[in-house]
Amino acid sequence: MAVIEQVLFPNTFGMELIYSFVIIVCSLLVYFSTKKMYDLSKYQGIKYFRMSFLFFAIAYFFKSFISFLFLILEVHEILEFSTLFLGVLTLFFFMYASTMAIFYLLYSVVWKDLKEKRFTIPLIHILVLVISALSIAIREVKILLGLQIFIFLFIAIYNHFHIKKLKGSKKPGHLHMIYLILFVFWMLNLADLLISGFNPILEILISMVSIGLFLVILYKVVKNVGSS
């Protein structure tokens, strides 16, 4: 009965499932609807943008799967969860996917300004895999939060200088602001999962705003793809 209650009532696994489902669908729609555009142009920026949303879909899948396991295994805390084999595995993939999602979204905007080397992306993958494994091995999930905060700060600073550079030449779009807000709410999502004792109302707010942001991005993608 407790399981059914958890599934049906607000601010529980049921809501987590709906919320994750919406975001996974949005992310996969972004990924697949931009496939043709990428196939034709092989434009790197489009590739990185698509990869970001593929990894977001994977990350949210693992996030909801972790919530499901919390329910089934009657676990209440992430540290307890990370002592179980299944816990370790799912946490590892969640951390890897979530960090790569943010990395690719950032990279899709900055790649033109950087001198990309052939092994840049594979090295980033390896680095993130190592950090994810390390943070689980030493039971210090705040390392991952720290890494993602670092990426967020990088975006915020880059965004600031990018807008400064644009002033006078052309009007900066709203995109950077959307991405910044998305990262803030992603961080809150992560904190919600990794740190226990989050306010239930805050959890609902995080979910609603995150869904809104993904829907805005999906709308912008479909608007452009649909016009082709």
Binding site: T34, M37, L40, Y43, I46, S108, V109, S228
Partner: peptide, 22 residues
């Protein structure tokens, strides 16, 4: 034919790249 398709979809591709600053 793929090249022809690229030409037809070029404007949409450019709009997308500019919209998302890719």
């Amino acid at each position: 034919s793929k090249g022809m398709e690229f030409l037809e979809k070029y404007k949409a591709i450019i709009n997308f790249v500019n919209e998302f600053e890719l």
